[in-house]
Amino acid sequence: MTILAVLVIGAIAGWLAGLIVRGAGFGLIGNIVIGIIGAFVASWILPQLGVSLGGSAFRDIVNATIGAVIVLVILSLVRRA
């Protein structure tokens, strides 16, 4: 996957995760980073749970969003502590 595609998918996933987890957005650059980290988290967690969503750009966005939501929830818990 090209760098541009990774950045676009990361931005979309981070933005969606910021909408899902209210008050946890980090701006454009932060959302891209959260989305990319979320993609790595989801690529590790989802196969271990036996979840397979097919193969497409839509699947990549959904996977990265799921991972980004997990990362944002963990970050919000750490912030409160």
Rank of each mutant, 00 (worst) to 15 (best):
F26M: 11
L4T: 14
I66C: 01
G30S: 11
F26G: 11
G23A: 08
A5L: 15
V71Q: 03
A13K: 00
G30W: 07
V51M: 05
W15R: 14
I20G: 03
L49W: 14
L49K: 10
A42C: 09
I9K: 00
A64G: 01
I29T: 14
V41Y: 01
I70H: 07
V62S: 03
L16A: 10
L72C: 09
L7R: 07
I61F: 06
F58E: 11
L75T: 05
I12C: 04
I32A: 00
G50H: 08
I45F: 06
S76W: 15
G67L: 04
P47A: 09
I61D: 00
L49M: 10
G18C: 04
T2E: 12
I36P: 02
L19W: 15
N31V: 09
L16W: 14
L77K: 12
Q48F: 15
S52R: 13
I45Y: 04
R79Q: 13
A57Q: 03
A64Q: 00
A57T: 07
G23Q: 09
T2A: 10
L19Q: 12
L19G: 12
V41A: 06
I20M: 02
A57E: 07
R59M: 13
V8E: 04
I45H: 05
L72P: 01
L16H: 13
A57F: 08
I36W: 01
I9E: 04
I36Q: 03
G14E: 01
I66L: 13
I9N: 02
V71F: 00
L28S: 12
S76D: 09
I36S: 01
R59N: 14
L46E: 01
G67T: 01
R59C: 13
S43M: 15
I20Y: 03
I20W: 01
L77I: 12
V51H: 07
A24S: 08
S52L: 10
I32H: 00
N63V: 14
A5V: 14
I29C: 15
S76M: 12
F26E: 13
G54Q: 07
G30I: 15
A13N: 04
A17L: 03
R80K: 13
L49E: 08
V51K: 07
A64L: 02
G23E: 06
I9H: 05
V51Y: 08
L28F: 14
F40M: 09
V73N: 05
V71L: 03
I66D: 02
V33T: 11
A68D: 01
A39V: 10
I37F: 03
N31W: 06
A42V: 06
G55Q: 12
A13V: 01
A81R: 14
R59D: 11
I29Y: 11
V78I: 11
A17G: 09
A17R: 00
V8D: 03
I61K: 03
L28E: 14
S56E: 06
Q48M: 13
V69F: 04
V73F: 07
V8K: 08
N31P: 07
I36T: 05
S52A: 13
I29D: 14
P47M: 10
T2F: 11
V62F: 08
L49I: 15
I3L: 09
I70S: 05
N63F: 12
I61G: 04
R80Q: 09
W44H: 15
I32K: 00
G25I: 10
V69M: 05
R59V: 15
T65I: 02
V8Q: 05
I36V: 06
G67V: 03
L77Y: 09
S52N: 15
P47L: 13
L53V: 14
G54P: 07
G10P: 04
G50N: 08
L16I: 08
